[in-house]
Write a protein that binds this DNA or RNA. Structure first.
Length: 617
RNA sequence: CGGGGUGUAGCUUAGCCUGGUAGAGCGCCUGGUUUGGGACCAGGAGGUCGCAGGUUCGAAUCCUGUCGCCCCGACCA
């Protein structure tokens, strides 16, 4: 026959029939090249109603994933290809940094966690991995859990296997599936219950080494995100339940992110909002001189900052003191802020409490002498001062100088309250939430606030885990020391979606070259025409020779359908071969996201395609 | 965990308020006409209306419970 009919139609006498794939004559088709008609790319015109954000919709519409249940997704062939590419780049950068790959079990004996330092908080998000039967095999308590991360597994391993300073430092990593029973899975792969993660763990002999390991990871992360085409910002972050001494989060700026980051590009300062500082309060700001003695005045019914701002009181919020009561490890304490500021609860972590919660009105009244809304910390007004374990003031109240605060008597406030003279304070600290536009703490430039998706996180852990199970080594003086650890994670599947969120338009995804499921799409508009098919096949082969992953759209669809699908999939380079172009003696080349279509003379086409690919790869 | 919403064909959905044999578009199958930005005509398959109970002569529709899914919130006085 000699005529390739890509969609696989043949004719027998007067009757059309469909050829089986194996019967199609495709001598030029290489093993790795994909024909759309034989592959599996279930695209959708409409998106399922449960997809809310752009990246989630595109993930489904372009046939990358399908949902099994809330937070659980199947990677379809195209999605898997992207995952594999991201994973490979991640692996390359980790290995380049000196980290060593291994693979730990996903199922962990529960006692490894029960003995660890964070069984309490982490337990709630862990899946148990019991037998699904009637419990005939053992006790009700979980014997096994599905691993949400691996600190608790690797630390005992390293404790057993590494005993000498000669074997340090070491950084291990793995890329695999993690299981977390999220309170609220959402946005597709963004917060899933089963997801792919690269996790790494460093073990060092001393603090300086641990910092070097940390910085090596930071560099590897930066290289990784650059290579996959994600614009990620490293921000100073809170260490949260992980514990440890310092940490950076890698954030992809996006409106749908669930973190806030404050940064200034010129000064280079960037921090998670929980951690962000600003230079709003000048260093060494002198306390304001008193303006007069404190004076009580009636404020019936005024129990909010806003109510005191309004007539008849007219006290601006930034001239008020706001007093909040919390309970830390069972003991109440107070925090004093400017009326115009918000408490950043995470910053209370610096006070060192393990458990922290706002005090209830029932707890507050007996201590302060008034209900919330009339509280203050002016000396002599607190009914039961010894009940407070401390009174912590945000630096910014110094800007108030002389202000108004609650009198600890319902319906009354005090004015002319001077910070230094009148307030009962244990110490100052940074407790307020930083706002956009405030000067950054490095160069005093205005901070910009953006939402961000957390795609990576690095922690310098210190000895939190090694101490717990006494994991350490012997140095050259025969003395034993604990490992100084670090731990590091990259959300592989989350990065995939973050890239889509960052790189799409109204028509579909715009993949970065490095992680595109295919890099070149040869769009054959007239698959029945032997000459067009021949040309398409040659161009596909040329692109593949140049190093691209090639998908050939040989479907017997109308051109409109093919173009719409091409835009939706977002394959970077599209080469269109159609009867109209062939009559003119050209094929068309178009970069996804670019406005113009390049017409290429047929006789140059193979060379031009090869050159375009080589230039990008 | 609290609040709100929602569940009807593979996907998007109408019908529900005001009970009376379940409708459309996309997709799919067959035939034909088409063929450069999601074609057209004709024919066809596909739904125990999430599940369970109740009210009723009669329930997708009303009531109760339950499950799934989606969204918001998780204490800032």
């Amino acid at each position: 026959m000699g005529i390739w009919r890509p969609e696989g139609h043949g004719r027998f006498g007067n009757k059309r029939f469909r050829l089986l794939p194996s019967e199609r004559p495709l001598s030029w088709l290489s093993h790795s090249m994909r024909l759309w008609s034989r592959y599996f790319i279930p695209t959708l015109k409409e998106s399922p109603s449960d997809a809310e954000i752009a990246s989630h919709r595109l993930l489904i519409r372009s046939g990358l994933v399908r949902k099994l249940a809330g937070g659980l997704y199947t990677y379809l062939p195209l999605g898997l290809r992207v995952m594999q590419k991201i994973s490979r780049i991640c692996r390359e950068e980790m290995e380049r940094s000196g980290a060593i790959e291994l693979s730990m079990p996903h199922i962990h004996p529960a006692e490894f966690w029960a003995e660890g330092p964070r069984w309490g908080p982490v337990r709630e998000i862990m899946f148990r991995a019991d037998s699904a039967g009637e419990g005939r095999r053992g006790p009700r308590e979980p014997e096994f859990v599905l691993g949400p991360t691996h600190e608790e597994v690797i630390t005992p391993l390293v404790k057993a296997e590494i005993t000498s300073y000669r074997d340090l430092p070491k950084t291990f990593f793995q890329i695999g599936t993690k299981f977390r029973n999220e309170i609220r899975p959402r946005f597709g792969l963004m917060r899933a219950r089963e997801f792919s993660m690269m996790d790494a763990y460093s073990f060092d002999a001393d603090d300086g080494g641990a910092t070097r390991s940390y910085l090596a990871m930071k560099a590897a992360y930066e290289a990784f995100f650059r290579r996959v085409g994600a614009q990620a910002i490293a921000v100073e972050a809170d260490t949260g339940v992980m514990g440890g001494s310092f940490s950076h989060e890698f954030m992809v700026p996006a409106e749908v992110g669930d973190n806030d980051l404050l940064y200034n590009e010129e000064s280079g300062y960037a921090a998670n909002r929980e951690k962000a500082r600003s230079a709003l309060v000048p260093e060494g700001l002198a306390d304001a001189a008193p303006e007069g003695p404190p004076e009580e005045f009636p404020t019936p019914g005024a129990v909010t900052i806003a109510a005191l701002e309004a007539a008849p009181y007219g006290v601006p919020a930034d001239r008020q003191f706001k007093t909040l009561l919390y309970v830390g490890d069972g003991k109440p304490f107070a925090v004093v802020l400017r009326g115009s500021d918000e408490l950043e609860e995470a910053k209370l972590g610096s006070l060192g409490f393990a458990l922290l919660r706002p005090a209830t009105p029932q707890e507050i009244e007996p201590i302060m002498g008034a209900k919330p809304g009339s509280l203050g910390t002016v000396r002599g007004t607190i009914r039961n001062l010894p009940a407070l374990s401390g009174i912590y003031a945000d630096h910014a109240i110094r800007l108030v100088g002389n202000g108004t605060t609650g009198a600890n008597r319902d319906g009354f406030h005090l004015r002319n309250v001077n910070v230094a003279r009148d307030l009962e304070l244990t110490r100052f600290g940074d407790f307020r939430r930083v706002r956009e536009g405030e000067p950054d703490p490095v160069a005093g430039r205005p901070l910009r606030l953006r939402r961000g998706i957390e795609v990576g996180h690095i922690f310098k852990l210190g000895t939190k885990y090694s101490e717990r199970i006494d994991a350490g080594y012997t140095d050259d003086k025969k003395e034993r020391h604990l490992f100084i650890m670090g731990c590091y994670g990259i959300g592989i599947s989350r990065t995939l979606q973050a890239v889509i969120e960052q790189s799409h338009d109204a028509d579909g995804i715009i993949w970065p070259w490095a992680i595109a499921p295919f890099q070149v799409l040869v769009c054959l508009l007239d698959p029945q025409a032997a000459d067009a098919a021949e040309i398409a096949g040659r161009l596909a082969a040329a692109a593949e020779r140049a190093g691209a992953d090639v998908l050939l759209d040989d479907r017997n669809e109308r051109p409109g359908v093919k173009f719409k699908d091409a835009d939706l999939l977002g394959i970077p380079l599209r080469i269109t071969v159609g009867g109209r172009g062939i009559k003119e003696g050209v094929v068309e080349m178009r970069w996804r996201g670019a406005a113009e279509t390049l017409k290429i003379p047929l006789d140059e086409s193979e060379a031009r395609v090869e050159a375009a690919v080589r230039e990008r790869a």
